[in-house]
Nucleic acid binder design. Sequence first.
RNA 1: GCGGUCGUCGUCUAGCCUGGCAGGACGUCAGCUUCCCAAGCUGAAGAUCGCGGGUUCGAAUCCCGCCGACCGCACCA
Length: 547
Amino acid sequence: MSKLDEVLNLAKIKGYFWPSFEIYGGVSGFYTFGPLGTYLQKDIEELWKDIFVKPFGFIEIDSPDVLPYQILKASGHVDNFKDPMAECKKCGAKYRADHLLKDAGVEVSEGAEPSYLEALLNKNTVKCPKCGGQEWSVKLYLNMFETNIGPYAENKGYLRPETAQGIFVEFNSLYNYNREQLPMGVVQIGKGYRNEISPRQGLIRLREFHMMELELFIDPQEEDAPDLPNDQKLRLLHEKARASGEPEELTPQEAYQKGIVKTKWLAFFLYLSKKFLNSLGVPDEKQRFFEKIAGERAHYSAQTFDHEVFIEELGWTEVAGFAYRTDFDLKSHMQSTGKEMYATKRKVVSTKENVVINKEELMKRENWKELMKLKPEIKADGVYLGNIKLNDKEYKIIQEVEKEEIRKFIPHVIEPSFGLDRLTLVTLYYAYNKKDGRNIFSLPKGLLKNVVAVLPLVSKDEFVKKALEVRNMLVNYGFNVIFDDKGYIGKRYARLDESGIPFAITVDSTTLEDETVTVRDRDTWAQERIKIRDLPSYLREKTNWRL
RNA sequence: GCGGUCGUCGUCUAGCCUGGCAGGACGUCAGCUUCCCAAGCUGAAGAUCGCGGGUUCGAAUCCCGCCGACCGCACCA
């Protein structure tokens, strides 16, 4: 069995994930996350937010999975997310119609009508690559799940192919919430749906999948990005390096300065992503950033890097995509709805001096009532009300805006987008190893941080009772506790190692004397004796991934 | 959709060619044992053999159809 097979097998047995609907024979492209898989996924989400969201004050939303037709029409998905499939009438083989025509030397534009493509194929007597047949029928295959909203068939909707559109269409409300500040980062963690023709490779290509997306809205004239770090190298298989197949190692700063990464924020996100994957246990040399060239990119992207992780059995596998979406999406929704989706920036062009009278001081003069009716004037030697010169305490000169320039523009978007299911698989893959013939998921300690096992050393009543007390205390501190009092202790430890549970707490005879328990580390098997009441802080400290 | 391989307890699998009680291992559970790493002993539960049809006295086994998985082709906007 290959390592990947062993990981998948163990993932199923230990409750991480497995193919869905198996009692009905299964349907490819759907996976169910089990109890530990659900914990793990939540922790990966938290880690991601700790790295990509919280440090920058970015915001998170939760929008519907179902989108009305108009939104995806405007975003370009209705036209770009479908393929014209040509079927050979003789042998039934299916190919993409535009590819067949291209191979035959006929160029067609995107989004051509199927009837037109069919006519072209038949007119040009394009041969079936398989049987040589020359008769074709062309039908569209839409890669999105289609549904109806309400009872009317014409009221079409789709399950979202990405969470991003739910953010773009709410731009105005979010921009308002953010007090009209750019850059503005908005994230969404949720499901995306793509009705793949033929999904393969288990968790890698799903029809329903979890994604974590960040849409960063910036002023294209003034990115306002953090300083780019120089302390780490990124392995960039950029457009020029692709010919050699060897990634160039550059720091984020170098990559930006050399023009290889077009925007500063994008370079910064690549850096964060590398660190994120490091935190999930993927070493540097098993990571790279692969640049997509023009024809390979999505319809909305001006520059795309895929973050890839090496898996022996699968090769380089994409876990995240970084796209420079420019103003494509906001512009499209603006055109489609007529609603303005601008950001504004104000810049002071000139100022003027203005006098503010200190009323309290002025009232010390007898004729203050008359003076208050006059307008203050700034003269060369001081400030006057009429022909009375004021003393210093009676007025203040302030600078006021005379003229300002208001610039309205459509923000540009830089999008890091992560596949959570793939990340979960990659994390388990790199955590999997063997020690003394046992399987262990040596997950980074920051993962599964809220899961802990409590075991009585042997199943005697007084131990079980005490262990249940410990369990209840930890539950009150927010831990998810696995309680196991069955069988020989070594076997229970082994079972927990295999599941990837970071710590096992054991109640023994000493516990009954002095209120201490042993805490066993999954990776070193070393045990420490800890006071029961110190357990929560001890465990929190040990599982803080930043330490 | 096509071609190849395959589908038997939770998992891995034997049996299929040559039709005759569906067996093992691991895991799970229970009892005994057990004060620290898959230990020992005893026992139990768990599979209408992917689904449907056909041939046959009799089908996991042979035949047909369907479903699903994996690998290639194609597809992955």
